[in-house]
Nucleic acid binder design. Structure first.
Lengths: 225, 225, 225, 225
DNA sequence: CATGAATGAGCATTCATTCAT
DNA sequence: AATGAATGAATGCTCATTCAT
């Protein structure tokens, strides 16, 4: 998978030509976003100071404002930037699969793999994001809606192809499944941060969630003769 | 159901001497908690000012500090207070049911009914709660763990009684189910606040979620002859 | 004259009853205004820091914001407060005089006496006031217009009573006279601040200005016998 | 009159690029000063950003610092530059006149004509100039003193030649007259910026001011037999 | 000379919390 | 217990100025 490397794809920006300054990987905008993910994840959006992000990125405080309108905008930009990469990655990964069931299972795996790979990003994307009032109340949707839309598409397709039951509203299903994945991720991430032992492996969790959603809880009373 | 009235169980306390103001049921602490739920839900924990809570509760700003150590403590106390009531209510409701399946379905219904009845409380409990650093990082667990424990108990019981499949880890299941309910609730609450049309009825959502978790997504290929 | 004492008339505000705290003369709002006049005059509105005003007033920085919306509002409030007092004082002083000429001469004297008495106030009123964009562009008028209106009234009256020439537009005259007085004041104040020797006594300046405006520059060539 | 064209006297200098871009007359320094006058007049010295001046001048922000030490220096340089031109123009215009009275009247006319011709310059010269602390407190004088000196010279000359009354101190007179002209100008300029209707024509104002200063306010009670 | 990205000192303002009454 | 004026630490953001290219 290439989620992260995709996310890191630098929007090409004038790189110093003569002296490459090899210490600075990626352009400044990218470095600030990376720093913001780290700091927001560690301290929480509201407790993070812009100056901390700057220090983490190795730039001066004012430099942040050359790239982002304000602290809120930094969070939103970070979100869009990363979600875009994640979406592209997911789409590419899912394109090669044949059945709706395979694609849905893969979606779950991809999400949890992403969380395992970049827990801080996961934390910011799911927890901290809810704290920027502007974001939550005026913006929210877009890319996140796209993400859920992807999920909904998989479900609808499954129903249309007769793979999935038709008596479950896809709009509710997509939220239920997303909520399930998200909560399982969040707890794992929280335990990790609290330096508690891993409560479960995320790969196993993916398997479990899929099993649950695919087959349901109720034990089939097979062949009651 | 009596969640709310239970929550409002007044720790008896006296009215400001002269005129008992019989209209105002509940003591000052309760009034402050009610105000906090309203203000936190409307403005978000970080954007809510203590003085707003005080104004909403009809007390002076300083009075809050006679009942709560600080703003964080107000949020946590609010949480404990309400969760206690909710838990008691849930336990009472579930006690009369026979099968694990019935109890689990009822749990889903109860949660969503609670959301429908007091959306602001639901919002605070699920969204704003994540924003108090002290809470999230040092406290969190307790009552919330109890709530999830209740859920886990239902599942374990179901497995033990042979009602549920044994190949799904209850610790993951409880999170998955809670996440599903929570997300479905959250979206509904969000739409409500944004004054968007209700995306779905919460009663229907409960039915759908249960159907999903009970039977799974995959359409049984019965008897392909 | 009582300009200053009038200006200091405290808008009655709850004074601590039991322990009079004799060190604090005047209420807090008044103390802040006095401090602001001093600091704005000495450092200029833009270079003055709110914390300096607070320190000068002997209050904490935040206290200023219990009385004034922001720095601009402090300047504007200061202006209104003092202008009101000055206007009341001027009106009272002029009421007792019979001819328009006497009143106009007295007006000049009063203005310059006010400058002599409270140079810092004069400086703020004439120089610093122009620096608050909101003030200059949206507010300005009112009390200042009243002041000029007082002047215009005197002139119009003089014309109507046949004391003054009718061929000079009162609206231009009032500006010309005000500008003359203001500039003469300003230079005197500036010299004072720069610790230069007084270029002239303000009482003499009043006499000179009146002589100039009353009789004009041109030496009457009548009756060269 | 040639005030403005004199001020604009281009110090010929070439345009950056390869092709001289013959359309842009005036060198960069001049263009920056013109931009500064416009921006300072419109936004006020303190609210004007150096980058705005740069944008208006069509140069990069840093370029300004190749021509001026800092923002204050830009204001001061602007002032000196324009005042020099104005003074030269005034001197030339006054040279041809015979009587002190004619010269003084002409001075008033010239000042107001200058205001009418370049209101933004007038605004900067009279309002914004007072806002640069360094200017006001350490520099001020020089060219402005020269301007007032010119005025004083006219008065002294008038007295010496017996045209003007000898009982008015020229140092006060020069300030009074300048203040009168300045205030009349300022109000006109202010109305213009506020897009209010012109309160009076500046030509008429010149006539009025001169009439006032020449003959005085008091109506001569000639020959009441 | 020109550029404009980077810098970082500077400051108004907010608001949780205290405490004298 | 209740009050609410006073406090002052905390911080996002601006913008004049610098300097490597």
């Amino acid at each position: 998978m290439t989620v992260h490397s995709a996310a890191a794809t630098p929007r090409p920006r004038r790189r110093p030509i003569s002296q490459p300054a090899p210490s600075e990987r990626g352009d400044k905008r990218e470095r600030i976003i990376e720093a913001a993910i780290k700091v927001f994840a560690e301290r929480g959006f509201y407790h993070a100071r812009v100056s901390e992000v700057a220090a983490e990125a190795g730039v001066a405080g004012g430099t942040i404002y050359n790239y982002f309108r304000n602290k809120d905008d930094l969070l939103i930009s970070l979100f869009e930037d990363r979600m875009e990469a994640i979406l592209a990655d997911f789409r590419a990964e899912l394109a090669g699969l044949d059945s709706a069931a395979d694609r849905l299972r893969r979606f779950v795996e991809l999400h949890l793999a992403m969380v395992a790979r970049d827990p801080q990003l996961a934390e910011v994307l799911t927890v901290e994001l809810r704290q920027s009032s502007k974001f939550m109340r005026e913006y929210k949707a877009r890319k996140f809606g796209e993400y859920l839309g992807l999920l909904e598409g998989l479900v609808v397709e499954g129903v249309e192809r007769g793979e999935f039951r038709a008596d479950i509203d896809p709009r509710i299903l997509k939220r239920a499944l997303f909520g399930a994945i998200d909560e399982v991720s969040l707890f794992w991430v929280g335990a990790r941060r609290a330096r508690n032992p891993q409560p479960y492996a995320l790969e196993d969790a993916a398997e479990q969630i899929w099993r649950l959603y695919a087959g349901g809880l109720i034990r089939p009373q097979e062949s009651t003769p």
